[in-house]
Design a binder for these strands. Structure first.
Length: 652
RNA sequence: GCCGACUUAGCUCAGCUGGUAGAGCACCGCUCUUGUAAAGCGGGGGUCGAAGGUUCGAAUCCUUUAGUCGGCACCA
């Protein structure tokens, strides 16, 4: 029998008889290792623990201690789900799409025919069958098959047939078998169904086959799995707690904003509390921009449609714009979907010299987009929004430096908000589908390289995302995760060689010629006020830092009659210092009022009675704390002012 | 926009197979009136998302429609 040589990750080499299984290799090293080994990798490809090794090479065992093992578990759980559904009469003839692991679990796309879709009500029955199959502890074995065999095996599964037909000619096709169930599969599975003990089906939702909106919609069943019950329980708990962070719930509980059918879908109304938070953010960012040489302007939300025809927005986004208003005299007005053409008009208003550059125009610009109904979500996806928009016009040789300075300002803002969880994404055009983008290969190559070079210069980590560029150029997007786990763009810096061309922007160079073409940078730091506020709500779970809190100080007189006047005096003192304070006059027991101040997450609660009044002091209780502290009214004022001045930064 | 689920008082929700609406919190009133997470009693409030239909009778069944939610697609 032939021998094969395996190279282990620690550098060791060992020879085995060909046909040996990873489980046997593991046992030869240590019994305990065999017990916790989930799968193996040979030369970077998965091999099941019970599949024979026919060749040597770099060999690695994956154990339950490896992060990767969770992916394997979840991938296996998706197969288990499919097998269980097939065993139930109701789903015996269901067709299956793909069933991969994802970040927090797995999903499987199913098609049980219109009107018979799987629903959450079916979950208990499916889960019960899954558990039964786990008990059967069916071995999971993989092997290669020919294309013809594969097509024969999956002939009743049209989606699988499509997948097989789309595999490149030279790609080997493998399947995974567990009991009566067979899956088209590349590997990375647990040794047997008995390994899958702790799992849960989470939700089901429609989803286009292969992500193409002209394809059929399949029912995507989501689930998750863990190695032990505690982790599963903790994850389900996390999912439930994430809902408590949802800005839509907090927005209602704290009276921040509402949306209603009466006003219109996707058109949020900012209540006083929410408006206060927004106003603080707006004042903050405008001041920051002014300090960074931005020139703030006001431009109309409504403009001549031709502006957007020239810019290309009309061509690219007509479907997502509000219909133009026909004024009857040949003029068409459009609710602007973007502010760039307005700021370009500012640039064009008079001849520009190279000495003016970089020219930085900024505005809290309100824009309207007719977002598809299914996309609307609270404040994070709306039809009317105000963008923290800025456009910088630079000479081509100033581009990289300006890019870097914008990025520095952005990161300084993040520090003030104590935003630490973000990633840089370089968004390039999709090389497979260049039709959606401005057609100038050289421009794309050059600007994408410039972007990358600037990031490398600054020594920042990033990932590259083909297909995420704007139609006019590549961009740097700063990505974050929302409370509910969604990926979201917080800030963006976009390179634009196109619009200066389209609008024929020029500046007078040192040579006196007014034929030099500037480059534009589009940037948003705190994004739209709507989305950013939603983000803040979720990040702080409604417990806003003092500088943003709608109400900063709640004052509770022990007795309205006896201490009301003193309470009002303190309130006035605080208000004169620019703070937001309120005296509670409701007739209620103190415990009740204290509780209310805490549930409304007011940063500071003052209780004022005889003692305070006699000594001109206040008794302070901070949000989330039980202890109280007595201090002079002035000391308290200074304390809060200092807190406000610190923004959200981590206290020194 | 697509698929599915949901829509009952300001909020959270109950209301079995059709017999014309209920709780808690909130709100208002009264009683109580001095110290850190819910005092007691009483009251007002809903054409059950909307429109059509079936029925002697519809919150409940059917159709259409709107919105919300979960995803997908889209996201300048």
């Amino acid at each position: 029998m032939a021998e094969i040589t395996l190279n282990f990750p620690d550098g060791a080499q060992k020879s085995y008889e060909a046909g040996i299984k990873p489980i046997e290799v593991a046992s030869s090293i240590a019994k305990s290792l065999a017990k916790k080994s989930v799968s193996a990798k040979l030369n970077g490809h998965y091999v099941g623990m019970n599949d024979p090794l026919t060749e040597g090479g770099d060999f690695q065992l994956i154990t339950t201690a490896d992060e990767e093992s969770l992916d394997i578990l979840r991938h296996s759980t998706s197969h288990l789900l499919a097998q269980a559904m097939r065993r139930l009469p109701k789903f015996a003839h269901a067709h299956f799409g793909v069933g991969p692991f994802i970040e927090n679990g797995f999903y499987y796309d199913t098609d049980n025919g219109a009107g018979n879709q799987v629903s959450v009500e079916d979950f208990p029955e499916i889960e019960a069958m899954m558990k039964k199959i786990v008990k059967e502890d069916l071995p999971i074995l993989s092997h290669e098959i020919s294309r013809a065999e594969a097509l024969e095996t999956f002939k009743d599964d049209p989606y699988k047939v499509e997948l097989i037909n789309d595999l490149p000619e030279d790609e080997p096709i493998s399947v995974a078998v567990q009991g009566e169930h067979i899956e088209l599969d590349r590997g990375g599975l647990v040794p047997s169904t008995g390994w899958i003990k702790h799992f849960k089906l989470v939700s089901v939702a429609g989803s286009y086959w292969r992500g193409q909106s002209d394809n059929a919609v399949l029912q995507r069943v989501y689930g998750t799995a863990f190695w032990n019950a505690e982790d599963l329980e903790a994850d389900l708990q996390r999912r439930a707690e994430a809902k408590e962070r949802d800005h839509r719930n907090i927005g209602r509980d704290l009276d921040l904003f509402f949306t209603s059918q009466k006003v219109g879908s996707g058109l949020p109304v900012w209540l006083p509390n929410g408006a206060t938070i927004r106003r603080q953010v707006e004042r903050y960012i405008v001041d920051k921009e002014l300090a960074n040489d931005y020139l703030h302007v006001y431009t109309p939300v409504l403009s001549n449609l031709n502006l957007y025809k020239t810019s290309g927005h009309w061509d690219h986004y007509r479907e997502d714009m509000f219909p133009p208003m026909d004024m009857g005299d040949g003029e068409f007005l459009e609710l602007r979907p973007m502010n760039c053409p307005s700021h370009i008009s500012v640039y064009q208003h008079k001849p520009r010299s190279y000495r003016d550059l970089p020219l930085r125009i900024a505005e809290l610009g309100m824009m309207h987009r007719y977002e598809k109904s299914g996309a609307l979500t609270g404040l994070s996806r709306v039809r009317e929004m105000t963008l923290n928009d800025g456009h910088t016009f630079v000479a081509p040789d100033q581009l990289e430096e300006e890019f870097k300075s914008i990025l520095k300002m952005t990161m300084a803002v993040y520090e003030d908000f104590n935003i630490t969880d973000y990633r840089f994404r370089l968004s390039y055009r999709d090389p497979e589908n260049t039709a959606k983008y401005f057609d100038d290969d050289e421009m794309w190559e050059k600007s994408q390289a410039q972007l990358k070079r600037a990031m490398d210069d600054m020594g920042l980590d990033y990932f590259e995302a083909p297909g995420e560029a704007a139609f006019y150029g590549p961009k740097l997007d700063i990505q974050t995760k929302t409370a509910l786990g969604g990926e979201e763009t917080l800030s963006t810096i976009q390179l634009d060689f196109l619009l200066p061309e389209r609008f024929d922007l020029t500046y007078v160079g040192e040579d006196g010629q007014d034929n030099h073409r500037p480059v534009m940078l589009h940037r948003g730091i705190v994004g739209t006020m709507e989305r950013f506020t939603a983000y803040l709500i979720e990040m702080y779970k409604g417990a806003f830092p003092t500088w943003l809190a709608p109400l900063q100080v709640q004052i509770i007189p022990v007795n309205n009659g006896a201490h009301g006047a003193y309470a009002n005096k303190i309130k006035q003192k605080l208000q004169e210092a620019g703070l937001r304070a309120n005296v509670e006059t409701k007739e209620a027991k103190m415990g009740y009022l204290i509780r209310e101040a805490q549930t409304k997450k007011v940063p500071y609660t003052l209780v004022l009675g005889d003692d305070e009044q006699d000594n001109q002091t206040v008794t302070v209780r901070r949000y989330g704390q039980q202890e109280t502290e007595k201090m002079s009214a002035d000391a308290f004022k200074d304390l809060v002012l200092k807190d406000v001045a610190n923004y959200s930064r981590v206290a020194e």
